[in-house]
Nucleic acid binder design. Structure first.
Lengths: 239, 239
DNA sequence: GACGTTAACTTAACGGCGTTCAGTTATCAA
DNA sequence: TTGATAACTGAACGCCGTTAAGTTAACGTC
């Protein structure tokens, strides 16, 4: 990962008052110039992400983040209303990559059914690859933010905590395509999408929370889940 | 729920030294007689359960439990190694009821396929009915206890934190029956049981963590999940 | 009935947490 | 030079889970 201190090589930044460490890490006191607070905000987010990755979700504290950003704990409250908001923004930046991957699949794969399968597989692997972010985004107590109608997800794309719904909106669109094209049975895309999401989420979340359970081979689980779900949803004509 | 103070109407219990409250709640100081510590243990568990139900998992603290049990916070450590253990025992006592219900289904329903469906439905409804206990048992960070081989679950039936695996063991047995009877496809009962569990868990846990999401009708979700799973797993001959 | 042992329980404190309050200091336009 | 204000800090609050050390009541034994 990148260093916390980046960009704009300002002399005052490079040699803050009282600096005495010869290495890259600057010592306090040191502050941003007026109007540069947003830079500090970014630095705090970068520090938070580093702590989050190194120490995990449970062990990420305000004081650790502050120390890593060379700032007092109180300073975080100049830029974020509370700890939750910081973690949400971290997770959002991670899940933006999932949305991107999903969009790529949408572009590259034309067949609706293969699209659906490919996208769900992408979701599963992403969740298993980023367990801490996944936990916080989908497994922690909801903050009510998910309550926004996912149909209007486009309107507030950059609102923190909405990356989950955005991903679901993509899934919903594809499921609707599959149904109207006659590949999947049923007449309720929302219900079908929710069930498919639930199945995938169940596998990811169980593997994350119970790593010591004597699971079958992970690849077999992924394939098995996709098979079971699609086979269970396939329209009569396509079985 | 029952009062915290129950059983053995000992005069010393009814009128502890320094008692001055006229109602049922006794004032401290007051202590159990020698050899009666296990009674205090039960009282603490009852108090913990009450707090757990009233205030929820997140807001249950050692100090609240102690206050409700008319005991100092440190007293809890005479009977439990840490807070987790108290919560685990609460959840176990709840999930014992699930195991019981599952056993009843096993007795009453002979057809393997109906057995499986009925049991999964039972699991879903139970989870949705006891969200806090479900969270703690299946959605919190695993304590490594689940790591015990579920085949030997019978050996340590009363070991705290093993109610989850015991439930899975039941599911596994039924799935194996369904496969060997030719109802379900595949040749790997473990894999199949894990997938079915994962699907059910996904639905329950999403509904619990994201209550504000615009879900479809809950009954439709339950039925839809069971249909999708069984349809997806049904052997060729039985479709 | 006094005595020593020990189970039952408490008080005080530790080090942590997220967060708030009341400043302080550096910056910058006028 | 000054006054306004953005950027930031130190000290504290009220929680938390947990530990160490001490106290008190109950009991078997003489």
């Amino acid at each position: 990962m990148e260093d916390v201190r980046r960009g704009e090589p300002d002399p005052r930044d490079a040699e803050p008052v009282g600096a005495d460490t010869p290495d890259g890490e600057a010592a306090r006191p040191y502050r941003k110039r007026k109007g540069e607070g947003h830079v500090r905000r970014e630095e705090i987010l970068a520090a938070a992400k580093a702590v989050f990755i190194e120490d995990g979700y449970e062990n990420t504290t305000i004081r650790k983040i502050a120390a890593r950003a060379h700032v007092s704990p109180t300073a975080l409250y100049l830029y974020f209303p509370d700890k939750d908001r910081i973690l949400i923004e971290i997770c959002d930046s991670t899940f933006t990559r999932l949305i991107d991957e999903m969009s790529r699949i949408e572009r590259e794969e034309r067949d609706p059914l293969r699209r659906l399968r490919h996208m769900m597989e992408c979701y599963l692997r992403f969740g298993l690859k980023h367990p801490d972010e996944y936990r916080l985004t989908f497994m922690a107590k909801s903050l009510g933010i998910l309550g926004v109608n996912h149909k209007s997800a486009v309107a507030d794309m950059d609102m923190p905590g909405t990356k989950g719904p955005q991903g679901f909106a993509k899934l919903l669109g594809i499921v609707a395509d599959c149904i109207s094209a006659g590949y999947l049975k049923g007449d309720d895309p929302e219900l079908t999408a929710e069930l498919i999401w639930a199945g995938g989420h169940g596998l990811v979340s169980l593997l994350i929370t119970h790593p010591h359970f004597p699971w079958s081979d992970q690849e077999a689980l992924i394939k098995g889940m996709l098979d079971m779900q699609l086979r269970g949803m396939l329209a009569e004509g396509h079985r």
